[in-house]
Design a protein around this nucleic acid. Sequence first.
DNA 1: CCTTGACTTTGAGTGCGCTCAAAGATGTAC
DNA 2: GTACATCTTTGAGCGCACTCAAAGTCAAGG
Lengths: 144, 144
Amino acid sequence: MQDAGYTIQDMAERCGMTAHTLRYYERVGLIQPVGRARNGHRRYSEADEAWLHFLHCMRATNMPIREMQRYAELRELGDATSLERRKILEDHRTAIATQIVELQQAHALLTHKIANYKKIEQRIRIGGPMIAEPEPDCSLAPAS
Amino acid sequence: MQDAGYTIQDMAERCGMTAHTLRYYERVGLIQPVGRARNGHRRYSEADEAWLHFLHCMRATNMPIREMQRYAELRELGDATSLERRKILEDHRTAIATQIVELQQAHALLTHKIANYKKIEQRIRIGGPMIAEPEPDCSLAPAS
DNA sequence: CCTTGACTTTGAGTGCGCTCAAAGATGTAC
DNA sequence: GTACATCTTTGAGCGCACTCAAAGTCAAGG
């Protein structure tokens, strides 16, 4: 039996989620009840796949399930909800931009600290002076 | 009474955490038992602040508490643990880089979809043809 | 016929990271 | 002196997003 469409396992792999998560998303209304094969098994369409990819992308960037539910709900209502949906996406985009900045700052901080560790390791190897720089570890306080 | 140092409230504000969280971090060993005023209240030092800022930065970039605990533990053991600590930071830096890429991709996707919503709204305003583009909403499937 | 394996459902359980409640001590302001 | 704010402790509770357990159905293979 195949009845056209992807099985839940296929879809899970394609979208980088587990089958558990796919059923969960359906339960909480993130995706409309999915088509079934004659034996009752779920069969996912290409459209389902696109939507699930989108959901995955939003979750991967920390959009709360609640907000995704709201978006999915509006989506069911058609073009009339375009404005509100756009606002959700714009807000999320802003949140993403903020996250990127934080991550970039942390990245820079880590690069700095990693270099510092290399120095410490060098001193240890050559048996050099063990007088560490001010705060060998956790420094780079408030501002930096 | 002041006994030198920041109160827990001060420190919470300075580090962008709550007092609850500061106590929690102390409980779970992320920060060594903090100095006390004569009345038993915590008094945080500048060094505490630097360390807490670092912790905040790591948490804000999704380092698990577990890993922070491991790092804090090694830190107590001094320079001999430099290599292992560096590895932790390098791994986290890698994780951050990955996150940044994901976020950037999502950002681009959202920009695309937001533009699409603007088109839809335009069509609605001018009462134009309501034949939407293929998949007005969730498109931009797998690859894109 | 019997096993195997992929699926189904419902409801409960898990792990993380806080977050709060309750009861009590202390210092400052009126 | 008494109200008030701010802190203290311990242990429990919570929200989120899964994640799993149990019991059952179904189709194919040997």
